[in-house]
Design a binder for these strands. Structure first.
Length: 357
DNA sequence: TATCCACCGGAATTTATGGAAG
DNA sequence: CTTCCATAAATTCCGGTGGATA
């Protein structure tokens, strides 16, 4: 059923970008000056998550870099600091400075070493304002910026004026795909990743419709449908497999998110999952009741309440738990009961201890 | 209605860790 | 080995908020 799983990875670049011709051209035009050794134009690329902003830039800049001698750096800005962004840029164009290089040194090196056009792609740039990286990059003549974000107006309003001005009239908006368009995009993946004829066109359209044009979700759903078909012993993907695909894809994404988090998050998550819904007061009580047992024999030690709130916010941001209510009356619940921690955390100990007290 | 309490989350500070240079 | 620098994680401090209680 599944011939090549790698086709469904985020890192997989399709051979041809479908339904993005105008966008590819606009980006290519912005980069054009770099071919002659001039600084490229800046560009602000915006659009909802999972519609191919990153794929578009990777595809277009890779192609440019193979044809012309243009250097570029792709930077995942999420959670990065000023220094780490500058260091990434330096690393992309030559030797990567060691981790403990002073910030001033990094900026100095940047000015000295960038003597030809460099395109810096700032991916997931929503929070890059909190760093000084934008200013530092803007100081260097030959650096041009391709910024990828969700909401362009929001991003520009938070940027310093001198930065925002650089993007005036230099914006590119990507929207969700239509059902037909996304089905077109899924088709080559099905062809390369699945057995021949395993999935029909109208099934691709059903998937495309369900994920509301978000390509990344569509691709995961397609893999999920094929996985279900295989597990259920079907020779080809049936409509029932398609129907159950998206929830399974969501479960995978959430499970991957939870797996990526630290032990602390897992403890809180499991307490919430066991309780179905729980208010913060009870949550903290449970945590205090079982923390000593659960953390026994581990390097980590239990957290104070303030830090637990940060972990809970993280779980919420990762779409693992829901929350409702402002200050006093907040409740939490897990969004998918079948997503569970891989750690052996028995929170029911807490329940019994509670009742004994 | 006034006061208290527990929780929320921003901001600053501390702690632990690790690589590089002297 | 000590010092310097950066980073991540956790703690401390604190103003704000809203429900419970006198």
């Amino acid at each position: 059923m599944i011939v090549d799983r790698s086709v469904f990875d985020d890192s997989h670049l399709p051979q041809r970008l479908q339904h993005r011709d105008a966008e590819v051209n606009q980006l290519a035009r912005a980069l054009e000056p770099a071919k002659q050794g001039d600084p490229a134009d800046d560009l602000l690329i915006s659009g909802p998550p999972g519609v191919g902003k990153s794929v578009l830039t990777r595809h277009t800049i890779d192609r440019l870099a193979t044809r012309a001698d243009v250097q570029y750096a792709r930077i995942e800005c999420m959670g990065q600091t000023t220094a780490s962004i500058i260091r990434d840029v330096l690393g992309a164009i030559g030797d990567r400075p060691p981790q403990n290089t002073a910030r001033e040194d990094l900026c100095l090196q940047l000015r000295e070493r960038v003597t030809d056009p460099v395109v810096v792609v700032l991916d997931e740039a929503s929070e890059v304002h909190e760093t000084k990286a934008l200013d530092r990059l803007a100081d260097v003549e030959y650096i041009s910026m391709v910024v990828i974000c969700y909401d362009p107006d929001d991003w520009l309003s938070q940027a310093p004026n001198r930065i925002a001005r650089r993007f005036h009239g230099r914006q590119l908006r990507l929207d969700r795909y239509g059902v037909d368009e996304l089905a077109d995009i899924l088709e080559p993946r099905a062809r390369e990743g699945l057995e021949h004829g395993a999935v029909a066109r109208d099934q691709l359209e059903t998937i495309a419709d369900e994920v509301a044009g978000v390509a990344r979700f569509g691709i995961y759903s397609l893999l999920a449908a094929a996985t279900l078909a295989k597990d259920r012993g079907h020779d080809e993907v049936l409509d029932v497999d398609v129907a159950d695909a998206y929830p399974l894809a969501q479960e995978w994404m959430r499970q991957a998110a939870l797996d990526s988090l630290a032990f602390h998050h897992h403890v809180l998550y499991e307490i919430i999952r066991e309780a179905e819904t729980i208010d913060s007061r009870t949550l903290h009580q449970r945590y205090d009741a079982i923390a000593d047992d659960i953390y026994a024999g581990r390097q980590r030690t239990p957290l104070i309440k303030r830090t637990r709130r940060d972990k809970l916010a993280k779980l919420h941001g990762y779409d693992l738990i829901g929350q409702e209510g402002g200050t006093k009356d907040r409740i939490y619940w897990v969004l998918d009961e079948s997503v569970r921690s891989g750690y052996d955390i028995d929170v029911r100990v807490a329940a019994t201890k509670d009742s004994e007290l």
